[in-house]
C-alpha cells in the first residue's frame, strides 16, 4: 500500500497486547468499510454514467422505490453494524472496566501516579516497597516527562491533572485516556518489549498543548528498580558528596 510504504500509517506495530487487538479490530472494520466504499462508489459512478448517457427520447424509469430492496439494505447493514458493536465489547471492557482489568493489576495496585499539568507530565512513584497513596508522601519520588515501567507485565497507574483537561496518549501502545480535573482515573497497559515509547497530550490544554512530549521507558524490573534508586539518590542529594556529579 502506498500509504504504509511512505510511513503514512500506524506509528509502528502496536506494542501492547491490547493495542494489537485494537489494530485487529481496525483492520476488520477497514475490510468491511473498503468493500462497502468500493461497492457504493462504483454503484454511484455506474448509475450516473448510465443516467447521463441515456439516448434522446429515452425517458427516465418511473419508480417510487422497492420495498424488498429497502428491507435488504436495512437488514444487512443492521446485521453488520450490530456485529461490529458486539464484537468490540470485550476489548473495551478490558481496557476500561476495572473489574475486567488483568488480575495482576488488581493485586499490584497502582504503581505510580501521572499528573498532567500545563505543559508537562509529572510522575510520582511511592517509596520502594510502599503502596501509592492518593496524597503525596514525604518519601515519594518525583520525575518529569519520563516514566519507567517494567516489561512483560500489566502496569496500572493513576492519572490525574493539576489544572485543565489533558489526555494521556501513547500512540505506539494505542492507549488514550483523558485526565480530568477532580478525578483520579486508573489506567493500565502492558509492554512486552523493552524500549522507549512516546507519550503526548491529546486533549486541548492551552497554547502549549503540542509541547507535552514525554517518554515511557519499558525495561526489566531490576532496571526499573535501579532507576528508582538513582532517582532517590538524586532527590536526597545534599550537595556534600564531592564526587557526585551535579546531574
Amino acid at each position: 500500500m502506498i500509504a504504509s510504504s511512505n510511513g503514512w500509517w500506524f506509528p509502528g506495530d502496536a506494542m501492547s497486547p491490547l493495542g494489537k487487538r485494537i489494530d485487529e479490530l481496525f483492520y476488520l472494520i477497514l475490510g468491511i468499510v473498503t468493500v462497502v466504499f468500493v461497492g457504493t462508489q462504483f454503484a454511484l459512478g455506474y448509475v450516473i454514467w448510465k443516467g447521463a448517457t441515456k439516448k434522446d427520447g429515452e425517458s427516465a424509469e418511473f419508480s417510487h422505490g422497492s420495498h424488498s430492496l429497502e428491507l435488504i439494505w436495512t437488514i444487512v447493514p443492521a446485521f453488520v453494524l450490530v456485529f461490529i458493536a458486539l464484537y468490540q465489547m470485550d476489548v473495551w471492557a478490558e481496557f476500561r472496566v476495572q473489574s475486567y482489568y488483568p488480575e495482576q493489576t488488581q493485586e499490584d495496585g497502582p504503581k505510580f501516579e501521572v499528573t498532567a499539568r500545563q505543559f508537562e507530565w509529572r510522575i510520582r512513584y511511592p517509596e520502594a516497597g510502599q503502596p501509592l497513596k492518593n496524597q503525596p508522601e514525604p518519601q515519594d519520588l518525583y520525575a518529569v516527562n519520563e516514566i519507567h515501567v517494567p516489561t512483560g507485565r500489566p502496569v496500572k497507574f493513576n492519572l490525574r491533572t493539576d489544572d485543565v483537561q489533558h489526555a494521556f496518549f501513547a500512540p505506539e501502545l494505542r492507549v488514550k485516556q483523558d485526565a480530568v480535573a477532580g478525578l483520579i482515573i486508573p489506567v493500565w497497559f502492558e509492554i512486552p518489549v523493552a524500549g522507549e515509547y512516546q507519550l503526548l497530550c491529546a486533549e486541548l490544554c492551552g497554547w502549549g498543548h503540542y509541547k507535552m512530549r514525554a517518554i515511557i521507558v519499558a525495561e526489566p524490573q531490576d532496571k526499573v528498580n535501579e532507576y528508582l534508586a538513582r532517582l532517590k539518590e538524586d532527590q536526597d542529594f545534599d550537595g556534600v558528596v564531592k564526587d557526585a556529579e551535579e546531574e
Partner: peptide, 23 residues
C-alpha cells in the same frame, strides 16, 4: 551553564516553564 540546563531539564514547577526533555 549547569543551572540553566537544569531548568531546561526540570522546568520550573508552579510556572509555565515546562521541562524540555525529551524534546
Amino acid at each position: 551553564k549547569d543551572d540553566l540546563s537544569r531548568v531546561l531539564r526540570n522546568g520550573i514547577p508552579g510556572t509555565y516553564m515546562p521541562s524540555f526533555v525529551p524534546m
